[in-house]
Design a protein around this nucleic acid. Sequence first.
DNA 1: ACCCAGGGTCATA
DNA 2: TATGACCATGGG
Length: 223
Amino acid sequence: MRRASPLEVYERLHAHYGDQHWWPAETPFEMMIGAILTQNTRWENVEMAITNLKQANMLNPESMITCDIEKLESLIRPTGFFRQKARRLIEFSRFLLAHDGTSGLKRWPTQSLRVRLLDVHGIGPETADSILLYALDKMTFVVDAYTKRIFNRLGLFEVNLSYDDVQNYFVQRLPGLLQLFQEYHALIVQHAKLHCSNKPQCDDCPLFDVCASAAETDRLSDL
DNA sequence: ACCCAGGGTCATA
DNA sequence: TATGACCATGGG
């Protein structure tokens, strides 16, 4: 099997799936809330919650910090983990207001802002990077379970790399273009949903000829 | 009746 | 540092 570079993988995915126009949200606040709600949760469930929040006129930080938490919990119930997520939404809304909203956050340098986001309880590296990249247009690479699974199957890095190791792997090998980073993660998710759920190899896969062999796939299958 | 999903935190060794 | 338990709903 031939080894593909991360940039080549990107080119193939983009040629096959086209522009993804991520993140699917109407406003930066909707995007950031969606990043919290989608933690270990299917996007379809998040859409139900977002719809509920919109209907209740709750999709803004002021409403989130003032309404009683049980009301918020009931609206986001379809996303699962609704008790901790309600607390996370409130805490993040407080953080956002304390920093003068989206425009206030944008004034911070990327890395120091990332540290501050990670300091918010319930925001880990993937959620922080998603917010930075898609709501604030900051250069950072988002790593998720799909990213590790796909690139392990491609044989491009080892199984037990940390989040930061995987992130550095891409940052060091890709041109530093914001739009490329935004598109790449979106393409990975799109590809994973269509092709890599439970069938490592199929014929119309854009990565077919650089995919790990069946034997290697078996060896790595518990990802 | 299982299994998992665009994670993160906390307790334990 | 490295595993494991826990959070909880909805769709396959």
